[in-house]
Structure formats: structure tokens, C-alpha cells
Amino acid sequence: MADTILLIALVLAAGAVLLAVLRLLRGPTAADRAVALDVMTLVFVPGMVALAVFSGRKIYLDVALVYGVLSFLGVMSLARYFDRGI
């Protein structure tokens, strides 16, 4: 029962990633692509946590946390770049 529900959740999350990829490809501006990447991050973080839960390896939680940190830094530096160049 729980497994079936989680499988449906996985399919929905995959759909979300596909839609974000669509926006990533279509743009039209670099900032739009940054938004698409940000959405993908928000899907991948729980994805990594799910991986940790199902593989039983707690270390993957740290991977998810560091991924979140790096994505935040990435968006911040992109914003800075749009604002006034590197």
C-alpha cells in the first residue's frame, strides 16, 4: 500500500522535473532558466532524502543538505551576475 503511494509520488515528481526541463530549454532569458533550475533543486532535495530513506544510508542526508547549500550559492551568484557582471 505505502509502496504504491510512494511510486505515484515519484511519478508526479518526475513530471515536475520534466516541466522544469521544458522551461529550462525554452528560456527565454537566463533568469528564467535559473528559476527552472531552482525548481529542479527543490524536487531533487526530497529525492535525495528519499534515496537515503530507502537505501538506509544516513550519509545521503548530508549530500542533500550540501546540495541545497550549493544550489542556494549558485542562485545567489547568478543574481549577482545579472545585477552587475562578475
Partner: peptide, 10 residues
């Protein structure tokens, strides 16, 4: 909600 948000982005 993740899917709805992504639909919004598209």
C-alpha cells in the same frame, strides 16, 4: 504541490 508548481513554471 511540486507538480503544480512546475506546471506554473511552464
Amino acid at each position: 504541490f511540486l507538480l503544480l508548481g512546475a506546471i506554473g513554471v511552464a
